[in-house]
Nucleic acid binder design. Structure first.
Length: 355
DNA sequence: CAACCGTGGAC
DNA sequence: TGTCCAAGGTT
């Protein structure tokens, strides 16, 4: 294995990075103190999500659930509602499971032992290192996409950062480079540098505080590194969305399964297009929901791109008589009460098109 | 390991 | 419009 750390002046790099971070770090809500719970919540929200997107969610979330115990006592539906629009909803469900464990096993105090933290649901290698270093000032690697990009360039590392095995290489490298005196500033400095200067496209090398140490900069490879293999493209699934409104103005909605895509979120009825021919939708609705259709109109279609799947939605609105067949997972809800339920974005769009 | 798991911003 | 990608984790 190559000893990448030997390619740079480690002491000078540490010093320059930390000095730059302490003079240039952004003012962010989760940087107001070192409350381990706030660090934790912020790190979960920031997974695969941009800072500007997270800020308003973080502020509202901490206001609503100020402590681990407060979150532990909340309903999962409440938590999902607070997470609505952020995506990757298993983050919210895992966080809720984890704080319950913190409340029951650790008296509501976020543990500071590595072994305890890493057992909590939703805390993987990155988040473990982030909490350990930022909240408890322990020298633990926190390797995210920023860190791999920055260090790829710094040490001229040509391994594919999309491969899981490669992350271990970077963790080993960070263990050599990390500051024992200020691991918090070191880890955050790497990420802040990646976000503000050493960006994926057109890195601002002229303003980089560590360009003197950067192997890619010296060989003009900053636009080639890091090496990252492409992910395969999404497959498309086509559905009818069936919006049923009864005579008292109630809408029929259903809760999604507890596993898989958009788990435990709510939606309007969905039907795979290949199941029923377009011309037979109306009789299908009358038969399945044991009702009579008074009005039927097709609304705007929606294309929604997920990380690994694409939905094409043909939205059909039905004004119906009272619905006699309502499954356990389904509910009739007054229009004015519908915003109490956590809806994923594509179904929020459906609702918007009703008005 | 590779696939699954959301959404919005940037270019 | 397409493509990448953003403070990843779980299975």
């Amino acid at each position: 294995m190559t000893d990448y750390a030997k390619r740079i002046d480690q002491d000078a790099f540490r010093r320059d990075l930390i000095n730059w971070f302490n003079n240039n770090k952004r003012t962010l809500p989760w940087r107001e103190d070192q409350d381990p719970y706030k660090v934790w919540v912020s790190e979960i929200m920031l997974q695969q999500t941009q800072v500007d997107t997270v800020i308003p969610y973080f502020n509202a979330f901490i206001r609503q659930f100020p402590t681990p115990s407060a979150l532990a006592d909340a309903d999962e539906q409440e938590v999902l509602k607070a997470w609505e629009g952020l995506g990757y909803y298993s983050r919210a469900r895992n966080l809720k499971t984890a704080v319950k464990e913190v409340k029951e096993s650790y008296g509501g105090v976020v543990p500071k032992e590595k072994q305890s933290l890493s057992k909590l649901k939703g805390i993987g290698p990155y988040t473990l290192g982030a909490i350990m270093s930022i909240a408890y000032n322990q020298p633990e690697p926190a390797v995210d996409g920023n860190v791999m990009r920055v260090l790829s360039r710094l040490c001229n590392i040509e391994e594919d950062i999309a491969k899981p095995k490669t992350k271990k290489t970077f963790e080993a490298l960070v263990r050599q480079l990390i500051s024992e005196q200020d691991p918090s500033s070191f880890n955050q400095g790497l990420m802040e540098l990646g976000a503000l200067i050493c960006r994926p496209q057109s890195p601002k090398c002229d303003r980089c505080p560590v360009k003197a140490h950067c192997q890619a900069f010296h060989s003009n490879k900053q636009n080639v590194l890091p090496i990252k293999s492409k992910k395969k493209k999404q497959s498309t699934h086509s559905y009818y969305v069936l919006v049923l409104e009864d005579q008292s103005g109630q809408l029929l909605i259903e809760k999604r399964p507890e596993n898989g895509l958009l788990a435990n979120m709510w939606q309007f009825m969905m039907l795979e297009k290949k199941e029923v021919d377009q011309a037979l939708i109306l009789p299908y609705v009358e038969e399945v929901y044991q009702t009579q259709v008074f009005e039927h109109k097709q609304l705007e279609s929606i294309k929604h791109v997920f990380s690994h799947v694409i939905w094409e939605l043909d939205v059909h609105y039905f004004k119906v008589e009272n619905i006699k067949h309502v499954e356990h997972s389904q509910m009739l809800v007054e229009k004015s009460k519908i915003d109490a339920f956590p809806f994923p974005v594509p179904h929020q769009k459906v609702y918007q098109y009703l008005n």
